[in-house]
């Protein structure tokens, strides 16, 4: 039996990631829908806050609001990210290839992470213009980028695992939300805390921010590791 040239896991990762990016570049399906959704959620937030004129309150609430935006938008994107894999059995085609199946997880995680980061790059300036313009910006504001990155990685990680599960279920959109939101809760809690502290330059910043970041990073490490280990079972089922 002739031995075919072996493809390394790294090459498989790059090929699969390239496929997702190329597909998205062509259809712009996820980015368009997530982008529009972001805008709509901002409009809803604006309407909800019409009567709350207190600028100080907005500053304190903005971290939480921003994370609510990220969670809603990511749910939309995660649902989409596996729809086209199932559409005509494409994922089955990938499963027939001799490759380490956790590579599928890592490539999908990376694709979802990149799409979410693109949306955040658009959402952050919009958010500032709509809600924070004219308010005093604290020098500690750049610290908010820490929880933003760590939180987005965690959302992409656990979200990719759950989206793989829910794509094969009835009522997949609602089910993804139901499984995703409680599981993401600790990460969300830590990230909202750290983000709010940074935006408000709260005196408690230096006490609590490191703890919140450590917990968020710990969550990412544990959850992504577990998802990576369990992914073969899920994607093969």
């Amino acid at each position: 039996m002739t031995n075919k040239p072996r493809v390394s896991a790294w090459q498989h990762y790059r090929i699969l990631l390239g496929k997702d990016l190329r597909r998205e570049f062509r259809t712009r399906e996820m980015l368009t829908s997530m982008g529009i959704y972001t805008l709509l959620v901002l409009v809803i937030f604006g309407t909800a806050l019409v009567q709350a004129a207190e600028k100080v309150d907005i500053l304190q609430m903005s971290g939480g609001l921003f994370w609510a935006l990220i969670v809603f938008t990511s749910l939309l994107g995660l649902n989409r990210s596996f729809a086209y894999e199932k559409e005509d059995g494409a994922l089955e085609g990938v499963l027939l290839v001799p490759l380490d199946r956790s590579v599928i997880f890592l490539s999908k995680l990376t694709a979802n992470l990149l799409f979410l980061l693109v949306i955040e790059v658009i959402a952050i300036p919009l958010f500032f213009v709509f809600f924070l313009s004219g308010l005093p910006l604290q020098p500690t504001l750049p610290l908010a980028l820490g929880p933003l990155l760590v939180g987005t990685i965690g959302i992409a990680g656990i979200g990719t695992l759950l989206a793989t599960i829910t794509i094969n279920t009835r009522g997949k959109d609602v089910l993804l939300a139901l499984l995703f939101v409680p599981l993401i809760f600790p990460l969300l809690y830590a990230c909202v805390s750290a983000t709010t502290l940074a935006i408000c330059a709260s005196p408690a910043l230096y006490d609590i921010y490191p703890a919140a970041m450590a917990l968020a990073i710990g969550y990412d490490v544990v959850m992504i590791l577990v998802s990576w280990l369990l992914y073969d079972f899920v994607v093969s089922a």
Partner: peptide
């Protein structure tokens, strides 16, 4: 796995 993390997070990060 998530439950102890939930507990730690709510316990160790007080509302600022």
């Amino acid at each position: 796995i998530n439950v102890p993390i939930c507990f730690m997070v709510t316990r160790l990060i007080p509302s600022s």
